[in-house]
Design a protein around this nucleic acid. Sequence first.
DNA 1: CGGGGTGATTGGTCTATGCCAATCTTGGGG
DNA 2: CCCCAAGATTGGCATAGACCAATCACCCCG
Lengths: 239, 239
Amino acid sequence: MSELPKYYGYKMRILEMIADLPPGSLIPTERALALDFGTSRTTIRKAIGELVAEGKLTRTQGSGTYTGGPKITHVRQLTSFTEDAKAIGYTPSSEILDIEQLHVDDSHAVEAQHMNLSHGDPFVRVKRVRLGNGEPLGLETACIPGELEGFAGHLRERGSLYATLREDFGIRITEVEDGVETHLAGPEEARLLKVEMGSPLLRIDRTGFDDDGRVVEWTVGHFCGDRFRFVARTRAAVA
Amino acid sequence: MSELPKYYGYKMRILEMIADLPPGSLIPTERALALDFGTSRTTIRKAIGELVAEGKLTRTQGSGTYTGGPKITHVRQLTSFTEDAKAIGYTPSSEILDIEQLHVDDSHAVEAQHMNLSHGDPFVRVKRVRLGNGEPLGLETACIPGELEGFAGHLRERGSLYATLREDFGIRITEVEDGVETHLAGPEEARLLKVEMGSPLLRIDRTGFDDDGRVVEWTVGHFCGDRFRFVARTRAAVA
DNA sequence: CGGGGTGATTGGTCTATGCCAATCTTGGGG
DNA sequence: CCCCAAGATTGGCATAGACCAATCACCCCG
């Protein structure tokens, strides 16, 4: 046995094959590749599986396997998805899945903890799919403490959560703390983001503070690992 | 056929099984689970595979499959690994794999681009494994432009790259830009970080600037997705 | 000429099985 | 009593094949 698994060798060979192809090119079928390489379809699928997870290939049942999507999508996440995406010539949009004015109960333990809320306190929760140039990039759930009258209408009109909070409710976020971890796509995320189950995602949670240091926003988002890049610029506070 | 794949159901059942177990507990063998659930070992392996990728299980050939490690390790990456890790009561250390004083040639295209260097310009490159409480957390390669005399010795003594630059070479980093993406572990990363090939990692690249806006550091790191959390705190610059 | 149905194609999932490599266990020899 | 060698156990890799579901192309019918 050689050092590396066979499937890894085939992965590299496929990587060479697709290196020069334009995005969206159809590659040979799994059965054909297995035959060509003299291996089994299972092994080819494992090789292709990793390339898919890396965003270098996409596969569609019944159709075929194609070379990677439109390419990497750099998106700054420094202040707001909408505002930053525009700044780099990217067309952002959102599809609102759900807006609710809620009151904290036992099912909101996580939200309450992050926003320092108690049982019965009001907050708004918005669930959205974030799109870039029409393609789904991420799934975001934002929570804002308080009772926000007519919030849904304002948000739909402006498109941007931050703009809505600022212009319609006088809520200004002056400092944010972002946390980034990895996460694997579950059934819901896979469906909404159009990726395979188990695909690596970036889980980005954000806590927004106002001038008085109060939490005025808490958001959790899951973004496609291969299409998204989180960027933070920080003035070093160290002496 | 139900909506969800079978392996996903088994994954959830295994998740329940291990929910109450302390970290490090041995779970039944793959063959036993396959028999119990009335399915094939292949399917069980797929279920366990995802749980491993999520950090909930670890498996060792010849030994068995065990419940997840010591739990999530929050690490701030705001200024410096060493300094921040200490601040939250975590014992950081590094294992230096390689230190080189180099001059830009054709093989350093990426490095040169990020540091705005030209052919022949000198820079130092350090490759380290970052450890937290003795466990490998990440693999980092740092590049610093310039000719740094006695750099290796100073770094080994101080342990911290930032402290070395500051104290021994008068290089002060006042602003950093961090980029975060996902990345799957390749053979080398898998070996050094003690994770499986294909495990999701956080790829964190950092560009450090001095007061004059010059690039004085460029670093790329790969960190275990399940043991690491990137945190950035930003004063919103938006009007 | 247009539209819809039908079958071939292709990826998605699962089974059953074999062998390899790392680890652990056990027992015998020094 | 300790150490180590050999066998049993366990995960790691790969094979061959079956059936399902989504898609696509083509042909037939209106």
